[in-house]
Amino acid sequence: MMNLVLRRLVLFIPMWIAVSVLSFVIVHATPGDPAASFVGQDAGAASLDVAHRRLGLDRPYMEQLYHWVAGSLTGDLGQSYFLGRSVATAILERLPVTFSLGMLALLVGAVVGIPLGTVAALSPNSWKDASTIGVSLTFLSVPEFVVGMLLIYVLGVELRWFPIGRYAPLSDGVGLWLHHLALPALALGLSQSALIARMTRASLLQVLGADYIRTARAKGLPEKIVIGRHAFRNAIITIVTVIGLSLALLLSGAFITEALFQLPGIGSLGVSAVLRRDYPVIQGLLLVSSSFILIVNILVDIVYGLLNPTISDR
């Protein structure tokens, strides 16, 4: 087990270097000039020169690249052009929002998705199966922003049950925090629930067809124990993988949902950074999100081991 985790951790270093070089190259290859966005559309050429010098954009390409990669290896992600703070601070400020949204959305996804998938798997090809699959297909195919806009219109503007376009940190109180995050978490969680429901159904069906389930039933075990202890325990491996992947995606920022609900998370930070060409922030975000994917993968491996001890021996 430790071996596996260590091997994955060693992978971190080449990944970090590769992503920092790649992100720099990609970001700098996009047309556009951060200085022009900073100084404003009415600014003349002389003003741009001053801004280029101040932002360090007048230095040679290779020097800027070296500076960035070397800095990132020591944990220094540089200074944002537009946010008046360091990239690390900017990301740390936004993380709680994205974490809150991601966790809540995942909770919605799991709470809705796992029962739906289980119900469908227990009576395959019945009307229950068809309707749960129908519902999950709908959530999967309707984009989050459509669900989000419907929620905003009905529950926000018409009924006024939920505030829209703002965020309250956990420090303002759990109630307020939940109230502000409910709509975006629902919008995001419903599409995740569809994926989780489908994976739960598929994996549970596969397990239910296995010999040991037939044996358990033949032994006369009650159905509760057959499903709960024998089938579900084995099916959960696949479900955890899906949840892990969802988590990694959610933590790297739900770009559209955050933009729609004006939540100041990683996703909206990324969108605005791209629009105004805040190079250091885009690069920093790419690095941080790739690290998340790696970390979540390691965590998923650890959870596998806990759920099924045979895996960790491999």
Binding site: S37, F38, V39, G40, Q41, F82
Partner: peptide, 12 residues
């Protein structure tokens, strides 16, 4: 968004 609180750096 204002890109800075330093009043003399931007014409936006």
């Amino acid at each position: 968004n204002a890109s800075t609180m330093d009043p003399i750096l931007s014409t936006t």
